[in-house]
Computed example of a mutant assay.
Amino acid sequence: MNPTIYACRLGLSRGWIETKNNTRTVDEWGWYVAVALVFAVVLFFQRDSTVEGTTQSLASVVLPSILGMMVAWSGILGPSGMLTVEREDGTLLRAKATPHGMVGYVVAKLVVIALATAVMLAIILAAGLIFVTELLDTPVTGWLGLLGFAALGLLATLPWGALIGSQVSNPQASFGLSMLPIATLSAISGIFYPITALAEWLQVVAQVFPMYWLGHGIRWALLPDDAAGAEIGEAWRLWEAVGVLSAWAVVGLLLAPPVLRRMARRESGSALEERRQQAMQRYGM
Rank of each mutant, 00 (worst) to 15 (best):
T133V: 14
I164A: 14
V168P: 04
L214G: 07
R87D: 13
E267Y: 06
E240F: 05
T23K: 01
R282W: 08
G161N: 02
S80E: 02
G161K: 00
R94V: 07
W143S: 01
G215F: 06
R275Q: 13
A40C: 05
I164N: 06
L83G: 02
V62G: 01
Q56D: 11
S189A: 13
V85R: 05
G229Q: 01
G15Y: 00
M70E: 09
A7D: 09
D226R: 06
L158M: 12
V244Q: 07
Q277R: 15
T196A: 06
A36R: 04
T55Q: 15
A97W: 03
R262P: 09
A264V: 12
V103M: 10
I76A: 01
G243H: 08
A227V: 02
T141K: 12
A95R: 07
R275F: 09
R14H: 09
A72M: 13
I218D: 02
P159Y: 07
E234G: 08
A264C: 06
F149T: 04
S60W: 00
A279M: 12
F131C: 03
D226Q: 15
G90L: 10
S57F: 04
V112W: 11
A173Y: 04
G78P: 09
N170S: 13
P224V: 04
P3D: 14
G190H: 04
P139R: 07
G75Y: 00
T141V: 12
D48H: 10
L125D: 00
L254Y: 07
V112F: 14
T55R: 15
M211K: 01
D225I: 11
E134M: 02
T50S: 05
F131Y: 14
G269V: 07
S74F: 12
Y283S: 15
A108S: 15
M70V: 04
A36I: 03
Q278L: 13
D225E: 15
G190N: 08
Y212L: 00
V259A: 11
A235P: 02
L110S: 09
L121P: 06
A122F: 08
T4E: 12
L43E: 03
T184E: 01
K109Q: 10
E200N: 11
I113M: 01
G101W: 05
T196Q: 09
S186M: 14
R24W: 10
V71T: 11
A114G: 06
V107L: 08
R266A: 15
T19L: 11
M1K: 12
G148W: 08
L177M: 15
G176Q: 11
V42G: 02
G68R: 00
L152H: 02
